[in-house]
């Protein structure tokens, strides 16, 4: 392999693969943009309803993405509210309290949880609804709350792992400062360790938001429907952006609906990319702060 020909071939291979991947990515984005850019008007989101009428919920939006976006927003907020306390506390326990052996066991469990396909989590949520419906509340059907709960289970392992990693990667000098001044373990965690790890944890939470926004498998089993309007309570069914895209791809009636589907794809990509950039920025800022410290 000493011949420069091999070297040349290797570089060519690396370049080729990179070009193929970039090409495929650009084709996907480009295809959506070309097909869907005509749909990118306020009409796509609000239909015939005025902006303020829609946002202030004065009039219902019928042929726009507004209800789907509102549904996705409610879903994200609810599942993050459910997942953050649990994920944070579990991550803190693993990083600060657990002995190595205990940590080994629990990380295995959470790795398995992270590996469970989202549709299985959705199935779990569906069965819980069924169980509760038959045994306790016969008015309970698949709804926003159940979806949010299932999504919370889905993002829980990510949240646990980011919290744990963020705390464990803090340098010893930060870790010992407060105890040397007489802080208890809890004070050390609350006053020093968590604030120092905050931006990493936040970037993990934002990535989890991205997952909640994009996941379709869970919600199609637990209460997302094609037309529901703005969700009225956590016990009602709802519309969601990714489910709308899936629905359009198989059930579109005419060309204009399909164009709206392309538009919805662009909106969803835009949202997810922004979340990604935000999370990336938070992580960058942290590493820069660490760089300047020394």
């Amino acid at each position: 392999m000493a011949s420069p020909l091999w070297d040349r071939a290797f570089r060519l291979f690396a370049w080729g693969c990179s070009l193929v991947l970039m090409g495929a990515f650009l084709v996907i984005i480009g295809f959506l943009c070309i097909k869907g850019y005509t749909a990118l008007t306020p009409r796509l989101i609000f239909g015939d309803t005025g902006f303020w009428d829609a946002v202030l919920l004065r009039r219902q939006v019928f042929d726009g993405l507004f209800p789907a976006m509102a549904g996705t927003l409610c879903l994200i907020m609810l599942s993050i509210v459910l997942a953050v306390p649990l994920g944070l506390s579990t991550g803190i326990f693993l990083a600060e309290y657990a002995s190595p052996r205990v940590k080994w066991f629990f990380s295995l469990v959470f790795d398995i949880l992270a590996g469970i396909p989202s549709i299985v989590v959705g199935l779990f949520g569906f069965c819980i609804t069924l169980f509760l419906h038959q045994c306790f509340f016969d008015r309970l059907y698949p709804c926003l709350l159940i979806s949010a709960l299932s999504l919370a289970f889905l993002v829980l392992p990510y949240m646990i792992r980011t919290t744990q990693m963020a705390l464990e990667s803090l340098p010893v000098s930060v870790r010992l400062t407060a105890p040397s001044l007489g802080a208890t373990q809890l004070q050390n965690i609350v006053y020093v360790l968590l604030p120092a790890a905050l931006s990493t944890i936040l970037s993990g939470i934002i990535l989890s938001i991205g997952r909640c926004a994009e996941d379709t498998a869970v919600i199609m089993l637990t209460g997302a429907v094609a037309t529901a309007g703005i969700p009225k309570s956590v016990f009602s069914s709802y519309e969601a952006l990714p489910f709308y895209i899936y629905y359009i791809s198989s059930q579109y009636a005419d060309h204009s609906e399909l164009i709206k589907g392309y538009g919805a794809c662009l909106v969803l990509i835009f949202i997810c990319m922004n979340l990604f950039v935000l999370s990336h920025f938070l992580k960058k800022r942290l590493s820069q702060r660490l760089l300047f410290r020394h």
């Binding site: 990515f25 295809f31 959506l32 990714p242 895209i245 990319m273 990336h280």
Partner: peptide
């Protein structure tokens, strides 16, 4: 730069891949 683009690709929703798959 390439790595950043690859990282950004992880945030593209699955349903988008499916949608483009169906129509392209």
């Amino acid at each position: 730069i390439l790595k950043s683009v690859v990282e950004a690709m992880t945030s593209v929703p699955t349903v988008i891949y499916g949608f483009v798959g169906v129509f392209l």
